[in-house]
Nucleic acid binder design. Structure first.
Lengths: 236, 236
DNA sequence: CGTAGACTTGAACACTGTCAACTTGAGTGG
DNA sequence: CCACTCAAGTTGACAGTGTTCAAGTCTACG
């Protein structure tokens, strides 16, 4: 496809879906900055189930996801896992947390990402404050999401967590009422995102289906059939 | 006191403790930027128990806490509360989340904060990228803390949560082993920060005291008496 | 000294986790 | 094409951690 000539940042690499939604880093940059950004951008493809970055390793790269879904998570020494986010095209990975990554990232589906060397990006930020401004704005959004998730994990019931999760995903994906929504992650991922077990996630989804709030055509898709009641079930 | 002449940013206001630790916004700024920052800074004092900002209100100000302790939290419609952070001098409040505050902030102790008009700060950032760079770095730190807290809320036991809380507080406050650490917040605040009830917090602290991990000289101070075992109890 | 609020302690309960069995569906190979 | 296998998901029974409800203790303050 001829979109291969320019990625989200104008780079001559094969990111196919770079402009499918506003991209975190590039949007609204002046042409000169865009060009420089393109010059330092590369492409990284990762198969479903493989890791993109690992917690604790030197944070050499920053990525913007352009295709597929990525999960970011932290592990405890005994293997307990907390998924802190599911990323979709346009989201940033590996940004500005010091010298090492503070979380691991694994591809939920096959993914494509734009890669930037951290050092190059920092140097470019020095010349184009607009770029840094966009990153700061993005960091603010992530922080807001993190705080909402803390409320969910600390204070919501299993039912409220699942409802909030489905509504949030539908909103981010721009899914309309009644339209089937893909759930690329498995039950274990959902459980580790919501601070539950797979059994509780499964039971809760089943109860919601029986209550007529959702439909589960197959294991990897949902349709929201009663938006109002689902919102009421989300607790806020 | 003659420190009243200059606050953390060089402003002629009465922030007494502005230089007690590296201040988020000001540190390492060039003199010119510091001067401009000082010119737009004001001081805000809030009594213990009173609100500094409220979730949903227009985000007109950004603050740096210079004295005392502040809690930031989100509420659910039915009153359930999740405290997402306890802020200490040097921390930022109200930064860059869009047009409205996404959390409320209430003083745990009497506090003093430097106030910046959001618009003025944005304008200043346009002229002094260094300022924005510091804010981005700070946002990264907050994000890292938020992710650690998600792991705590989603996957840790009550005992691990309390241990992690005490260790984290001691580290941030620079408390040495054996030294008494002030706990200005009450049990209800701790519970709402850790996603527990006050009863569970109380029970857990008592068990830790009986196990010889900590001492509780009074309700608002702790000493860590067995750092190694407390760390082991924290789960990581 | 008495009161009120914060904290602690106890007992019963409930939500969610654990363990185990069963179902489903995709992939494989005869 | 069908039987087999295996992983993922579902369902059920029971258990346990933490919550709820209630009573008691402590302490600051008038």
């Amino acid at each position: 496809m001829d979109r291969q000539q320019t990625n989200c940042c104008g780079a001559r690499v094969d990111c196919a879906h770079c402009d499918i939604r506003p991209i975190a880093i590039c949007g609204a940059l002046q042409p000169m900055a865009l060009g420089k950004l393109a010059a330092i951008a590369g492409t990284r493809r990762v198969d479903a189930g493989a890791q993109l970055i690992q917690e604790g390793e030197p944070a050499e790269d920053v990525f913007t996801l352009t295709e597929g879904m990525l999960k970011i998570y932290k592990l405890m020494p005994d293997g307990r896992r907390q998924i802190t986010g599911f990323l979709i095209p346009g989201d940033l990975v590996g940004l500005a947390y010091g010298d090492s990554y503070i979380y691991s990232a694994e591809a939920v589906t096959d993914i494509v990402a734009c890669r930037f060397r951290r050092g190059s990006l920092l140097a470019l930020m020095a010349d184009y404050p607009e770029l840094e401004h966009r990153l700061l704005s993005r960091a603010g959004n992530e922080l807001a999401a993190a705080q909402a998730q803390m409320l969910l994990l600390g204070r919501k019931t299993a039912r409220e967590r699942v409802a909030t999760f489905l509504l949030g995903l539908a909103e981010r994906r721009g899914i309309d009422r009644g339209e089937p929504m893909p759930l690329p992650m498995n039950r274990s991922d959902i459980a580790d995102f919501l601070g539950l077990t797979i059994e509780t996630v499964s039971r809760t989804l089943t109860l919601m289906r029986k209550a007529g709030l959702i439909n589960l055509p197959d294991k990897h898709s949902v349709t929201i059939t009663d938006m109002a009641h689902l919102q009421a079930a989300s607790g806020d």
